[in-house]
Write a protein that binds this DNA or RNA. Structure first.
Lengths: 401, 401
DNA sequence: CATTTTAATTTGAAAGTCAAATTAAATAAG
DNA sequence: CTTATTTAATTTGACTTTCAAATTAAAATG
């Protein structure tokens, strides 16, 4: 039990150092409530183990305080190497981060097919990670952990994939398979969850302990951070925000049910109605067709506007429901493509504000976070970072004992 | 920090004893992972302080084990007295519990009006609690804490009521006012939250750490237990499930917005349409009129059935949305009146199951818990019990130091 | 009545935290 | 240039807490 106490201290301090970036010991003591003596002891352990390092202070403000100057601590990037992999339709996106979260390399590579057998996909990931490491001048076996984000229903704690649009089989022990194939600890989770992890670790959620992240790709995803931790539901599965119902007996969704949010806002939902808009070429690429539709709407085409505006209204309604249920302090709309600008518009956010219960208190902050192409992969890497940190702390505990 | 550790042990053990009812020390050690030595130390403290007492084992199974027999510990009912108060339209419902949760008295009393000034309501509660204590042969100043459940938007941590249908003023420091008026610590929260607390403490949620409680009264309420604790949102406010939107530009709700769940399933929503059903007497009592409507539906009246069935469908849709977002292991539908049987029917639960994302795993368990009339008041009392336990443990910590 | 078995308590060592004292490293003052 | 002052970090020693092991307690069994 005494060891539990030390573990708490270690966990808290490492997390705080990571969040702060660079921070002197005395501030760590103030921030965490742990005494200076203990902060010294624990950080000495970290230094000895190479997890953190001391750096000279280089503040813009010349500090000008007299007395012994503070010495900043920061995560030591060289301590570990992690990779993040996002599995999408036809490709893999990958990033390689050091232990500090600095990006060392990024890559994309094609997949043989949109749906693959688990073994095939695992091998593709192994090869891609090996190549990624090579590009950065490292060896694959230097990687301490790999995070993998995949669409579908995933039980993150056991690495079990109930179902995924990227896998040809159901109910796969994909985490174990990956760990075996890559020879490196692999951590798998629903992709939207991982974006939430990334926002918490690197992004706009750094200062918050309770917030929601809504992602739009071809589907609509939701990640929830509650009480400083990702909430995965009781079975470790992610939230299925895209399939919450917004209309009784509504539009048909690709999940086979009716009235899902996704059936109104996803690209395929827009295109279903777009055949009625002039200038549409049904044989063109879907992304291209959506672009044409949005252009028509902006140009004032009544039919196109009707389609796009309804999608916005429905999306606002879905967001408002989340606010009414969670009362979060922050909602992050994370996306990359201009394609979804119509859902991130001020009009939509305003409509959402009008649909939440009115009280004499500020409505939740809504921010749009346009990540680059590699948002999803960075999310996966952030998860790996988290897990690798845990493992490192465990090892520290065992060595000390 | 060392004191934090002891506090953790105390908290854990008292909670475990409360949950178990009666339990021997050795089992407490196994259950909590705390060593037998420490369990002895801490429970000795509890015994000394009178929070807990030893009782002879009286199992039906004659145990038949040789060796020194186990001695059960249980919460000592006489240690504290708490009251729970539920504020409804025209009345107050109250219960008096001992520290073990045993009900010593219960009462209802009328309120001068459905909406009252905060001071008036506080005095009414003071008088009612005093009377309740008298009925049980106790004095009001023997009560260690009073929990109060009120409809509306409440910031439980500060006892701040943003808005309530029972109060004539907004933004009232009602918790502080009550504590001042009663001369006893008062704890206020949204009523649906308190039902969740009660389910967690006494009810069907005792074995679960993550579940949802949906309550139906004149509105629809939601309480969420996440990670073993009530989740109140970031501002301490309860979830507003009743005002989640189920239809774009839908039916008008009493909150002034359109398409709220409540606007389809609440009694006033049913009655709004019931004027078209034969046999309705618009001047009758609302509860009576709802009864007439449901009778007509059961008797096969097409219009009445249409009204009632749609309410059920919409309710099922709302429940399905909760499941899709939370993936809970359990949903408790808590209610008292036969009036809502049509929402608790197997058909509704079946419709909900069809509207959730299908995976190869069991859907959440849905149970209906029909409490007696005093469900709400007991919820409030359970909250008070929780808070009084906390205060008792704090006192213990200070005395030891 | 001694033996065995199991529960609860006591004991003494080990681990951990922290306030206070000390040391370290800088600036300011004389 | 030296000394005083100030602030950060470390060390020290007292105190708390936990826990394994030893001991004691209380029963059934032979």
């Amino acid at each position: 039990m005494a060891v539990m106490q030390r573990e708490y201290g270690r966990r808290t301090l490492l997390r705080e150092i990571r969040r702060a970036g660079r921070v002197p010991r005395i501030e760590l003591a103030d921030l965490t409530g742990i005494s200076r003596a203990t902060v010294t002891t624990i950080t000495a352990e970290f230094l000895m183990d190479g997890l953190v390092e001391e750096v000279a202070r280089d503040e813009g403000e010349p500090d000008s305080r007299r007395g012994r100057p503070r010495v900043d601590l920061k995560i030591r990037g060289a301590a570990h190497l992690v990779a993040g992999v996002k599995i999408s339709h036809h490709k893999l996106s990958l990033v390689l981060l050091d232990f500090e979260g600095e990006q060392l390399a990024a890559e994309e590579c094609d997949l043989p097919a949109p749906v693959n057998a688990p073994e095939v996909l695992a091998k593709a990931i192994r090869d891609a990670v090996t190549h990624l490491a090579t590009v950065a001048g490292r060896r694959a076996d230097e990687v301490s952990g790999v995070g993998i984000g995949i669409a579908g229903i995933v039980e993150a704690n056991d690495g079990f994939v109930h179902w995924s649009p990227s896998l040809s089989a159901r109910n796969v022990e994909f985490g174990a398979l990956l760990t075996r194939t890559l020879g490196v600890p692999c951590f798998i989770d629903n992709d939207a969850n991982l974006v939430a992890v990334a926002e918490h670790a690197f992004g706009l959620g750094r200062e918050h302990s309770d917030f929601l992240v809504v992602t739009i790709e071809s589907g609509v995803g939701l990640g929830m951070v509650i009480g400083g931790a990702l909430y995965r539901g009781t079975r470790g599965c992610g939230a299925e925000f895209g399939h919450t119902k917004v209309q009784l007996n509504g539009a048909l969704c690709r999940c086979g049910q009716r009235g899902c949010l996704e059936a109104y806002v996803a690209d395929y939902a827009l295109l279903r109605e777009a055949t009625l808009v002039s200038g549409q070429d049904a044989t063109a690429d879907p992304a291209k067709r959506v672009e044409t539709l949005l252009d028509a709407a902006r140009a004032g085409d009544a039919t196109a506007r009707s389609i796009v505006e309804r999608a916005g209204q429905i999306f606002a309604m879905g967001l408002a429901n989340l606010v009414n249920i969670f009362d979060p302090e922050l909602i992050i709309l994370a996306g990359e493509q201009m394609q979804f600008d119509h859902l991130y518009s001020d009009a939509v956010i305003e409509a959402m504000r009008k649909s939440i219960v009115q009280v004499d208190k500020a409505p939740p902050e809504v921010v749009v976070h346009k990540w680059g192409d590699l948002m999803w992969a960075r999310g996966a890497a952030a998860y790996a970072l988290d897990k690798v940190s845990e493992l490192a702390l465990e090892r520290l505990g065992e060595n000390a004992a």
